[in-house]
Computed example of a mutant assay.
Amino acid sequence: MNNDNQLKTAVGEWSRRTVPPEVCALAEAARQRHGGVGAVLFYGSCMRCGRFDEGIVDLYLLVDDYHRAFDSRLQALLNRLLPPNVFYLEVAHGGKTLRAKYAVLTLDDFARGARQWFHSYIWGRFAQPSGLVYARDGESAARVQEALADAVCSFLRRALPQAPERFTIRELWIRGLSLSYRCELRSENPAATARLFDAAPDYYEAVTHGSLQAMGLTMEALPNDGPPRYHLRISPWERKRNSLAWRLRQTQGKTLSVARLLKGLLTFENGVDYILWKIERHSGIRVESSPALSRFPLISLCVTFWRLFRKGAFR
């Protein structure tokens, strides 16, 4: 088995785990809304906690083409210009109401995002564990697995120069995940990013070793009585260049996040309430909705975003 296959095997063993029936029901309902769906991925907080009747399940629909996926030309254009489009879904299942938020992206864009995008929007999310709920055929499944492996490599390539000189794998991922979240509206604290790692430590250990081998990098294991510590030779110039890239990524990411939230007004039912709920969930800062927000959402949201910025919601 070559190094690249070791990484894909580590990613694949997790993504092929049995998916709960609640998630399958939501994925099928979302898939019926759109044409040309090649795969559906499941990720996020509901995957980590295993509760599907209280939160909102996060799904990604990977499609062949935006025009096939949407009846609306406007939706297809928006998804192409500022991917992804995000939608809300409710499904009755087992006497309960299940809820999902799903994003639509072409498989080509997903693969490019995992491998090439400067911003961490795709590789920051999908370097973390995810589940393959649906794949149309073996070729689609293989392309998704390859993109997930690319996401891990992209993440670690950008996170390693920010790690301490001597680090554990846990410290490496906590640092990288913290940086990635700072590139969006939400800025998770170290305790929250530590919980992400602690939810699946075996996964992170396996994909880290597989990814570094695939990239031809060797971590030097250091003598230590506790968790294994490592050292990777990275020049001071590379660390400075990497720090600058993360600062640029944060500026770009927050700008794109605001644009995507505004675009969500066109795709979400009760879009204003969703946007305010999402900001409160990730920043802890609450702004009440009002009739004005419903009547003039774009103007009112500009004012609201400014107030939230001054309160520190986007830092």
Rank of each mutant, 00 (worst) to 15 (best):
N3Y: 05
T9G: 07
T9Y: 06
G12I: 02
R17F: 00
V19D: 08
V19K: 14
P20V: 09
E22W: 12
A29D: 07
R31W: 06
V37F: 07
A39D: 13
V40E: 11
L41P: 13
F42T: 00
G50V: 03
G55L: 01
G55D: 03
Y60M: 09
Y60R: 06
L61S: 13
L62C: 09
Q75M: 14
L77K: 10
L89W: 05
V91D: 09
H93T: 00
G94R: 14
G94I: 06
K96V: 06
K96W: 12
T97M: 11
L98G: 04
A100I: 12
K101L: 07
G113N: 06
F118S: 12
I122Q: 02
G124A: 00
R125P: 01
Q128C: 15
S130T: 07
S130L: 01
V133N: 10
A135F: 01
G138F: 12
G138V: 08
A141L: 00
A141Q: 07
Q145I: 02
D150R: 02
S154F: 05
F155C: 11
R157W: 06
L160W: 14
P161H: 07
Q162D: 05
T168Y: 08
L172S: 03
I174H: 04
S180A: 15
A191G: 04
A194Y: 02
A194K: 06
R195E: 15
L196Y: 09
P201F: 07
P201A: 10
Y204E: 13
E205T: 11
A206G: 09
A206M: 00
V207M: 04
S211I: 03
L212I: 05
Q213S: 15
G216K: 12
E220H: 11
A221V: 13
P228E: 15
L232S: 03
P236R: 03
W237I: 08
N242H: 10
L244H: 11
R247H: 09
L248D: 01
Q250V: 13
R260K: 12
T267C: 12
T267I: 02
N270H: 15
V272G: 01
Y274H: 15
I275W: 01
W277E: 10
I279E: 03
E280G: 10
R281D: 05
H282S: 11
G284V: 00
G284H: 00
G284C: 02
V287Y: 04
S289R: 02
S290V: 07
L293N: 00
S294Q: 14
F296L: 02
P297W: 01
I299P: 01
I299G: 02
W306H: 12
W306V: 08
L308G: 03
F309G: 11
A313E: 08
F314Q: 03
